[in-house]
Amino acid sequence: MAESVVRRRAALRVLGRLAGRLGGALFVLWAVASITFFAVRLIPGDPAQAVLGGPGSQASPEALAAVTAEYGFDQPVIVQYFAQLGRLATGDLGRSYALNMDVGPLVLSQLGGTLVLAVLSLALAWLLALALATWSTRGGLVAARVATSLEIVAAALPHFWLATSLIVVLSIWLGLLPPISTGGVAGLVLPVLTLAIPLAGFLGQIMRESLLTALESPFVLSARARGESERGALWIHALRHASLPAISLSGWAFGSLISGAVVVETIFARPGLGRTLLGAVTLRDVPVVIGVVMIVAVAYILMTLLTDAASRLVDPRLRLS
Rank of each mutant, 00 (worst) to 15 (best):
S311M: 05
V220G: 05
L12V: 08
E228M: 03
I236K: 09
V107H: 00
V107A: 02
R87L: 09
L193E: 12
T148W: 09
R231D: 07
S96N: 04
T36W: 06
V77T: 11
G279P: 13
F254E: 13
R275D: 12
A48E: 08
F219A: 00
L273H: 15
A147C: 05
L99R: 11
A147Y: 05
L88D: 11
V264L: 06
V103P: 07
G112N: 02
P47D: 06
I78N: 08
L127I: 15
V189T: 13
A98W: 05
S171K: 01
L111M: 07
S121T: 14
G201M: 03
F268W: 07
L257P: 15
A299N: 10
V107F: 05
Q58S: 12
W30G: 02
S181A: 13
L124D: 07
L273I: 14
V142R: 14
I35D: 02
G23P: 03
V14M: 08
L18V: 15
S222Q: 09
G20K: 14
A63L: 14
T213Y: 08
A39N: 00
A310K: 00
I78K: 01
S250Q: 13
G23S: 08
L195F: 11
A242L: 06
R13K: 15
L122R: 02
G23H: 13
R231K: 10
L302V: 15
L177D: 06
S4F: 15
V262R: 01
A196V: 15
A225M: 05
Q49I: 06
P44W: 12
L320I: 14
V288I: 04
V32S: 10
L305A: 15
L120N: 02
Y300A: 06
G279L: 07
G291I: 01
T36S: 15
V153G: 03
L120E: 08
T282R: 12
S60I: 08
A19L: 15
A163Q: 09
Q110V: 12
L211T: 10
S149L: 14
R17C: 04
R208Q: 11
R138D: 01
I236E: 13
V185Y: 14
V142E: 10
A253C: 03
G53A: 09
A65H: 11
G272T: 04
P158T: 09
G255Q: 01
S256R: 05
L12Q: 09
L99M: 09
P287Y: 00
T90R: 15
I43D: 07
L278H: 10
L177K: 07
S60F: 07
V168H: 04
L305N: 05
S321Y: 15
G139Y: 04
G232P: 02
V262E: 06
Y300C: 14
A144I: 03
V298M: 12
G204Q: 11
S109E: 15
H237T: 03
V220W: 03
S149F: 13
A297Y: 10
A65K: 03
E216I: 00
E228T: 14
G23M: 06
V6G: 01
D285T: 02
T90C: 05
L52M: 09
L239I: 12
T282Y: 07
P316F: 07
V32D: 04
P55T: 08
L124T: 12
V292G: 07
L166D: 12
A223I: 08
A154W: 05
L257W: 13
S243D: 04
I295R: 04
I236D: 06
E3R: 01
S243V: 15
L29F: 00
A83T: 11
V103A: 03
P44F: 13
T114K: 06
M1N: 13
